[in-house]
Design a binder for these strands. Structure first.
Length: 843
RNA sequence: GGGGACGUGGCGGAACGGUAGACGCGGCGGACUCAAACUCCGCUGACCGCGAGGUCGUGUGGGUUCGACUCCCACCGUCCCCACCA
């Protein structure tokens, strides 16, 4: 590929060009990932600027879709540009390979999910390769392979040792027909996504990762994520849902139980007229046992357990509840208030118990109305009668009334004052609540990483020793869940010896949520096949945090939050030297077609392969980026893609119009003085370099960068067609324009750019320094200044750049159109924006 | 109910307080061709005018500013996230 004498075929044939360059890159190991950790080799870390460009790894459910093409093309552009800027670029690829789709296919066909998955991966790999992304395929990882999930299990055990993984009872969505736990996303309108059966809530023993221990740090460290989209940060902030309030301890009427509540309104404590427990609250049974109300309460609790989450959470549902016959004592005033059980109280937020202040909380007010409970005013705005109970919940500001020693205090002051009062007496304190829940990672499913613990009657839950990892998935007959994980059917798997005491024991049969796999894959890329560790500290500290992460906004909350949590835990464990995984995040918009999100069920999917067949990978890459700003949703147009193919055809013809090599140097400004057409072309070329650089590096605006390339190629083509650059100097200018356009085109359409670069006499374009604009060509010798009268455009004029303001003004005032516009009026103000505009304000 | 994003030609979109509609699609007219495809050239926001030119125009209504698609407020519409979170 020395590119000496190379004749260009007349017609652009993408299939030939793309195959040729994909082979060339592979043969040259052009995009080799280095350095990475390998078995038996000590890492050598180059002293060079490095960049980790990462796109969210695909889920191998079948084929890639247009969203993937857009995602990986964006990442590829960034990777190419940075590589050619001289940075050491790391741009790996892998597969998030565990999970439901492969498993469901296996349940249908009986085929092993590993086979389904590997076949899908082979298909996707082929599709990605056809698009020519600059990744090193030797470092590919797949989360479902034992060499990967061994380390997922190893990391789980580190969480377990730290007390960050624990097993406890939790309510889960349960489909009584399928006999399985469903993720929230699998519950549609309170029914099972697959069979339509009403979903129940069920108490099951489940594994959790204690992400709530990290709630505050996940919140605090967001301040360092300045290059993340605000909307993602906002979504995460809302998801974590920090709220300040107080813990208040109530005591049961017999003095036997202390029942804490969490409230954000400790200032309204004197307004509590009743008390609520969630149906799942452990004290419910103990409070009602042996009482006449017990039967009614148990009925209610049972009904609540059967009701689905969606049903319980329904918006305008009447507030139901049942009186327990018991009372609790309010610590501020010793008042006894009745205890009810109500299903609008959630067991997993706060303490599962609530003090009800109907005067100042909407839900409590509705409940009080429904059940004839008293409403009391404890906050009054100006001019409000303190003894008139609110007619509706009043959540606004005011001063405290009917609140003993706190009367007259403003709400804002009363909150800390009441909390302090409680703390002094040992019946509460100021505290912070989060709506973030612990991360339930248990799945009663086959196709996931087995949770590597053993249940021993004598020792309890025992970790599988590191040297016995991986705990391999057993072979089973049936992949369908039957109330427990399918792997529980494998006796050989389940029955084992306790690693601690050697007695017969049972293996855990739950597998892990696939989000666990994808919470650390970006670390594994630095050691994709290392057999001695998940990764090496030196290497991850070298490459991470990821410089540019790119993916769909649908992962704005869960994946990104989980990955951040993982990295913080690994930091605390001393396994990594950074606390955030992704320094810069870009979330792309979706591609729509015929007004809807592309989906098989809507029949509006455009298959990338078909587009590659018809137009070539380069055209497809270009078009997905040309669609609009990548952060915005975009509408696919069948005709639109033809425009980008036409553009590449035009680039091809422009390059073909140039003689085969060698490459030329840019003509100097001085040489070009006598040749206006050539000068103009070089000026446009340099301006395009500046524009593309700015759009790609600063704005992520690939669509306008591509537009700028259109402009340049159109101008060069026109200059050539009109014979303006037929002379030797003109030909050099044209060649320079062509060379530069091809060079700039490369990150977007690498195959055709490489082919044309070769024709023009260049070698390895992927290593060619990325163009910088020649500043001397960016300055113009005349600028257009627009002239406005009262802000209305009246005329425009050419002036030298930096022309003195008074001269510009004088020239503007002499323009005939301006004269007629200001005729008979007096100028009251003159605004001059240098080199841009004049505005005359007249009256 | 809470939070967020977005409303610009026939369509995708451009314009980071200073020429609204770049670039692309589509459309119209023309050149090339026996014809077509390809390619090339011209026009293409609306209205008035033969023309030069003029008037209007970025969802609606206000505001800030010499000047607003852009900033602020309210409303209408679309989409996304969260949602009985005490």
């Amino acid at each position: 590929m020395s590119g000496t004498t190379h004749t260009l075929p007349e017609r652009y044939d993408p299939a030939r060009v793309e195959a040729k360059w994909q082979q060339a890159w592979e043969a040259a190991q052009a995009f080799r990932a280095e350095p990475i950790s390998r078995d038996g080799a000590a890492p050598v870390l180059p002293d060079r600027p490095r960049t980790y460009v990462l796109e969210m790894l695909p889920y191998p459910s079948g084929e890639i879709h247009m969203g993937h093409v857009k995602n990986y093309t964006m990442g590829d552009v960034v990777a190419h540009v940075r590589r050619r800027r001289g940075e050491l670029v790391f741009h790996p690829m892998g597969y998030d390979a565990f999970g439901l789709p492969a498993e469901n296919a296996a349940i249908r066909t009986g085929e092993h999910p590993a086979l389904v998955t590997r076949r899908n991966i082979a298909r996707i790999r082929e599709q990605l390769k056809r698009l020519g992304f600059s990744v090193d395929w030797d470092t590919e990882i797949s989360t479902c392979e034992p060499e990967y999930y061994r380390w997922t299990q190893w990391l789980f055990l580190r969480f377990f040792e730290r007390g960050l993984a624990e097993r406890r009872e939790a309510a889960v969505n349960w489909c009584p027909k399928d006999q399985t736990v469903l993720a929230n996303e699998q519950v549609v309108d309170g029914a099972c996504e697959r069979c339509g059966t009403e979903v129940e809530l069920r108490q099951l023993s489940q594994w959790f990762l204690k992400i709530t221990d990290y709630a505050q740090r996940l919140l605090d460290d967001m301040d360092t994520l300045v290059d993340w989209p605000d909307r993602v940060l906002t979504m995460q902030r809302n998801w974590i849902g920090r709220s300040e309030g107080a813990r208040v301890v109530f005591t049961s009427d017999d003095g036997a139980h202390e029942i804490p509540v969490f409230t954000t309104r400790p200032d309204t404590l004197f307004g509590a007229t009743f008390f609520l427990l969630a149906p799942e609250h452990p004290l419910v049974e103990r409070l009602v046992a042996g009482r006449p109300e017990a039967a009614a309460v148990r009925d209610y609790v049972r009904a609540a357990a059967r009701a689905s989450a969606a049903e319980r959470g329904a918006q305008d549902r009447p507030k139901t509840g049942v009186f327990t016959g018991r009372h609790v004592v309010n610590p501020v005033n010793g008042e006894e208030i009745p205890v009810w059980v109500a299903d609008y109280v959630l067991m997993d937020y706060g303490t599962g118990a609530v003090m009800a202040v109907p005067g100042h909380d909407e839900r409590d007010f509705a409940f009080a109305r429904e059940h004839g409970l008293p409403v009391r005013r404890v906050v009054a705005g100006d001019g409000v009668d303190p003894d008139a109970p609110p007619e509706q919940a009043e959540a606004g500001d005011g001063r405290l009334v009917n609140s003993g020693p706190f009367d007259g205090m403003a709400v804002q002051d009363a909150k800390p004052a009441v909390a302090a009062w409680l703390a002094e007496r040992g019946v509460g304190e100021a505290t912070v609540g989060y709506r973030l829940r612990d991360w339930l990672i248990s799945r009663q499913r086959y196709w996931g990483a087995p949770i590597p613990v053993v249940h021993c009657d004598a020792c309890g839950i025992v970790a599988v020793p590191d040297d016995q990892l991986p705990v391999l998935l057993p072979e089973v007959e049936d992949y369908a869940p039957q109330g427990k994980s399918p792997i529980a059917a494998s006796d050989a798997f389940v029955h084992t010896a306790c690693p601690a005491c050697g007695a017969p024991a049972r293996r855990e049969t739950d597998t892990m949520d696939t989000f666990v796999d994808s919470s650390w894959y970006f670390l594994r890329y630095t050691a994709p096949h290392l057999s001695t560790a998940a990764f090496e500290r030196e290497m991850v500290d070298y490459w991470l945090p990821v410089d540019q992460y790119i993916g769909g906004v649908e992962h704005a909350i869960l994946h990104l939050l989980y990955a951040r949590f993982f990295v913080k835990v690994l930091y605390d464990l001393g396994l990594v030297g950074f606390t955030e995984p992704f320094a810069r995040l870009f979330t792309q918009g979706m591609i729509y077609h015929l007004g809807a999100k592309m989906s098989k069920s809507k029949g509006n999917v455009i298959a990338p392969d078909e587009m590659v067949d018809r137009f070539g990978a380069d055209t497809l890459r270009l078009y997905t980026l040309f669609l609009g700003h990548p952060a915005d949703d975009a509408e696919w147009s069948d005709r639109g893609i033809e425009g980008q193919r036409r553009f590449l055809d035009r680039v091809w013809r422009m390059a073909a119009a140039c003689d085969a090599g060698p490459l030329v140097a840019r003509p100097s400004l001085q040489e070009l003085q006598a040749h206006p057409a050539a000068l103009d072309l070089v000026r446009r070329t340099e301006a395009t370099v500046a524009k593309v650089n700015q759009d790609v590096a600063e704005r992520f605006a690939f669509h306008t960068a591509i537009s700028a390339l259109h402009d340049l190629v159109n101008a060069a083509t026109k200059a050539h067609a009109e014979g303006e650059v037929a002379d030797p100097l003109g030909a050099r200018a044209l060649r320079w324009a062509a060379q530069t356009a091809v060079s700039l085109l490369f990150p977007f359409a690498p195959h055709v750019a490489s082919e044309l670069w070769e024709h023009l006499g260049g070698g390895r374009l992927w290593e060619e320094p990325w163009p910088d604009p020649a500043e001397e060509f960016l300055a113009r010798d005349a600028v257009t200044v627009v002239v406005q009268v009262n802000g209305k455009l009246r005329d425009r004029m050419e002036v030298p750049p930096g022309h003195p303001q008074d001269a510009v003004l004088a020239q503007a005032k002499a323009l005939p159109k301006v004269l007629s516009a200001i005729d008979g009026k007096s100028i009251v103000r003159e605004v001059v924006v240098p080199d841009r505009l004049v505005n005359l304000v007249v009256r």
